[in-house]
Amino acid sequence: MFVSLFILTLLVVTAISIARIRDLWAAVMFTGIFSFLGACWMLILDAPDVAFTEAAVGAGISTFLMLGTLALAGKKEKPTKGSPLVPLIVVGVTGAALIYGTLDMPHFGDPNSPVQTRIQPSFVEKSQPDMHGLPNVVTALLGSYRGYDTLGETAVIFTAGIAVILILRRSSTEAFGSGSTPKKGSK
């Protein structure tokens, strides 16, 4: 409970400092920290698979990609000219509406909430005979019961990878004309 509250406080502090900081390099680093803290909280929330993925993808690859972009597109953020009042009001109203929406949600960790009672026992119980004793239920779900989801996800990554290559290759041949332009090392 206290560890959880500590991590949540750090998460909020990190998010606010990302919003306030002007140096983009520092903001990217804070984003990595944010993702890692999120992964820590996911570990407490019994989702180790998501925590691993978030630590590897959110804190690792994502930070790497952003640093590559910073090297190509500039590190400093110009000060915003307009007043931050309008965005603050919009954010405040949206947040208040969302918090109003949570008031009748099932409480944290409630075993009788609809999320837990509808489908979960059948997955945990059925995955054992179905998967011949595969220990990790998340793996069973990901690979078999929701296999088409994972297939679609793979298709999305493939498409995004091709699109990134196409966008960046065009820039190196047409805009500069020299083959020695540093390409972004993504994908």
Binding site: L45, D46, A47, D49, V50, V115, Q116, I119, Q120, F123, V124, V137, V138, L141, L142, R146, D149
Partner: peptide
């Protein structure tokens, strides 16, 4: 066990 479905 916690719910595996949100994780997936």
């Amino acid at each position: 066990y916690s719910n595996p479905l949100p994780s997936v």
